[in-house]
Structures are given as structure tokens and as C-alpha cells.
Design a protein around this nucleic acid. Structure first.
Lengths: 133, 133
DNA sequence: ATACGGTCTCCAGCAACTGGAAAGTCAATG
DNA sequence: CATTGACTTTCCAGTTGCTGGAGACCGTAT
């Protein structure tokens, strides 16, 4: 599997897959005779996982840590569990914020009549939003 | 309200609030005699909104567009509604992906015994993940 | 009056890509 | 078998969105 196929399969741009190979986040399986990077199923899974993690604001280093669990079978599973739990609670917080943003926008769309009057309530709706972190 | 208070209220670093002022994303209400930026309730709401939008991968320009709706009362509300709807469906897609990432991790934590054996199923769980964008 | 924390501007650096150039690879077609 | 065109390689520069630090000014409190 060449880089282009891996990119398509993982939903990442080729450039990014190459970049991840360069920084050692997701290394290819190996190289072909002519120097082409080879990717297999496992690598594509890691790329998908990385894409998801990155898209929710986990840094490359945090993503590397999670992917590290994938690789390092000598790590104790209690350790693995602890790290995964930490990330899980971060994810849950993120989900709440995402819900808040969604609801805010949905409410505003709802309240807006959708005609051509310039006093769309979307404008005023923002002011009352939740201010907590 | 000085920049520090606005930062605290919005959950953003002072540096970032200043940066947003510099690029005109969220401008302060005005300046004090001595040049201090002034922020009010409306500006803080915009900062919160901007923080949320940014934290879910909306670019500064997309965020600016959404905040622009807030400002530009001369824009037709149909236009406003259309843009907001587009963003809403993006948000819903993001929520699904976030749920998938969460479930993946939660399942793995569940399956992991949490003892010190090195063959924690978290490792194997990754390989079977969803590969769609 | 002096200490302190907050604020100002400016400038440099970082993270994570992203785009473009120049050259090599590979499969298919004339 | 030559050549076309898509794909890949490396390298390097540019972009986005902050982030840290220096040096100076502001504002309140002892």
C-alpha cells in the first residue's frame, strides 16, 4: 500500500501522512526497492486514530503517547488504563463543550425566521451564552 | 473590565485575547485613558464563543464569519441562517467522530483488566477501528 | 516612595502542517 | 520502446495560531 492509498484510507492528506512519518508518529511498514513508503492495515488504523485524536485537540505528543500504548507491549496494563482514563475524562469534557456550542447555534438557527429582515435573533442570542470554561 | 478579567471570564489566556484583538477577531470595547483594553459582557460572550469554535477545529476565519453574523445587522437573516446551518451540520459530524473516539477508548479501558500483565487488550482494540472519514 | 501585579508594544519562536520545486518511479498506451 | 501522466521522493520555504520574553508604563497598597 503506497502513501496515497494510506492517505485515502485514513482520511488524511498525503502531506500529513508523510509529515507523521518524518516525526515518527506513524512510521510506514518499510520502504519499497525504490524508496516508496509502505503502509499496511495496522498503520492505517494508527493513522485513523491519530486523525481523530488530533481533530479533537489532542496534541501530537498526547497522540504519540496513546499510540505508544499500542506499540509498547512491555508497559503494564494498569499504566495503560490510567492514561486512557485520563484521556477519557478529557474527551467527556470536550463532548460537553461541543454540545454547548451545538445547542447555542441550533437555538439561534431555530429562533431565526430565515427571511430577509435584518434583525435576526441569532444576533442577540449570543449575548446570553454560558461563560464557564 | 480589563484584559485579565476578560481572559478569566472567557477561559482564554491573556495573550490569546490580545492576539484576537490584534487580528480583529474580538475587538475590545475601547481603550482606557492609559491605553488599557476595555471588555464588556458582549465581548466576553464573543470570546467564549470563539474559544469553543476554535477548540473544535473551526479556523479563525470561520469563527470570524460566525462572529460576523453577530455584528453585521444589515446581513439578511436567510444568509445568517444558511451559514449557521452549514456549521451546524459540521458540528454534528464532529460530535459523531468524538463519540466514536470516546467509545473506542471507553471500550478499551473496560476490556483492560488493569493489572500488571503486559497483554492489555487496549493494544489490540486499536487495530479494528473504523476507517471512514 | 516604593513595591507589586497588571498592562502595554514589539519581536522571536514554536507546533503542526501546507505548498511548491525538481527529480525519480511505474503502469499504460501509441 | 518511447513517452505520457499520475504518483512518489526530498528539501525548503511559508502559513496559521498562538506563546514566551524583554523592557517600559500604569495603578493600587502599604
Amino acid at each position: 500500500m503506497n502513501i496515497g492509498d494510506a492517505a485515502r484510507a485514513s482520511g488524511l492528506p498525503v502531506k500529513t501522512v508523510r509529515y507523521y512519518a518524518d516525526i515518527g508518529l506513524v512510521r510506514p511498514n518499510g520502504r519499497s526497492e525504490s524508496g516508496y513508503r509502505n503502509y499496511g492495515r495496522a498503520e492505517v488504523s494508527k493513522l485513523v486514530f491519530a486523525r481523530r485524536a488530533r481533530s479533537f485537540g489532542f496534541s501530537v505528543e498526547q497522540t504519540r503517547e496513546l499510540l505508544g500504548l499500542y506499540e509498547d507491549r512491555s508497559r503494564s496494563s494498569a499504566d495503560v488504563k490510567r492514561i486512557a482514563r485520563e484521556r477519557l475524562s478529557e474527551l467527556e469534557a470536550k463532548m460537553q463543550e461541543l454540545q454547548a456550542l451545538h445547542d447555542e447555534l441550533a437555538h439561534l438557527v431555530d429562533a431565526c425566521r430565515g427571511d430577509h429582515r435584518p434583525d435576526c435573533p441569532i444576533i442577540d442570542g449570543f449575548a446570553g451564552g454560558d461563560v464557564s470554561r
